[in-house]
Computed example of a mutant assay.
Amino acid sequence: MTPLQKAYRYKFLSQCLAYPNEAFIPALNEVLEKIDADRDPRQTLVAAFEREETEPLQAEYTRLFLNGYPHTICPPYESVYLEKRMHGDAAVSVAAAYTEWEISVEPGLIDHLATELEFLAFLASAESLDNTVSENASKASKAFMQQHVTRWVPQFIEDLKAGATMDCYRMLGEVMEKTLAPLSPKS
């Protein structure tokens, strides 16, 4: 898989974690059009999101990721998964990785999974360049996956698949799992 195709896959997953408003499906389709292979699971996922009415979809998103009762099923923050609190040491470490690439992120979203996926998409795009930046981006991507994503996202995915009441979000967990596993660096 080319680095650019890897970037589109990360971008697609990041977009799937956006709040499902009127721009949600068009944004997913825009990225999906750029993916050149193995599109079927992603097309099926987009179709599953499209089948849902907006308000129930927004309610499920809120319950899963923002403020479910009695607890949020799968808050998409590395610090919450690793340290059971917001803005923990994990967020500081993630911010340092962004700073190395001169990327600034809204403070409340530093260790949000969508932001981490966007960063991986950025690095994969940089890998597509044919120069020193490419080599550095490849190393940074592998390090970021190992030091951050692989430490908490597998549990997030399991929680998402187990806790979702809508097929589309269960399917998102499956697509995330199938997408990220082959892209993770081997230990």
Rank of each mutant, 00 (worst) to 15 (best):
T72A: 05
L82E: 11
T115F: 03
L109D: 04
A162G: 04
Q155N: 13
F119Q: 07
G88H: 03
M145K: 04
A126G: 09
T132M: 12
S125E: 15
S141F: 00
N131W: 04
N67W: 10
N67M: 13
S79T: 01
L117K: 08
S93D: 09
N131P: 00
A96P: 03
D159R: 15
S125Q: 13
L117M: 08
E158R: 15
V149G: 00
S128E: 11
V94K: 04
K142Q: 14
A137Y: 02
L82D: 04
T165I: 11
D167K: 14
E135K: 14
S104Q: 13
A140S: 12
V92A: 14
W152I: 02
G88A: 03
D167Y: 12
F156D: 00
V105I: 14
M145L: 04
G68Y: 05
A126I: 03
V80H: 12
S134K: 09
L117S: 04
D111Q: 03
K139M: 10
T150S: 00
I73D: 14
M145I: 01
I73S: 09
S125I: 01
S138Y: 01
V153M: 01
S93Y: 10
G68I: 07
D167G: 09
K142E: 12
L160S: 05
E83Q: 10
Y81L: 08
V92M: 14
S138N: 12
P70V: 06
K142P: 00
H71K: 13
P70W: 07
P76S: 05
M86H: 09
R151M: 00
S125M: 13
P107H: 07
R85T: 10
A114S: 13
E158S: 15
W101H: 14
I110M: 05
I110N: 02
K142F: 00
G68P: 08
E102I: 00
V149H: 01
P76R: 12
W152K: 01
S128R: 08
P76M: 08
A90Q: 10
G163H: 06
A90W: 02
L113A: 02
L129V: 00
E118Q: 12
A164C: 07
E118N: 07
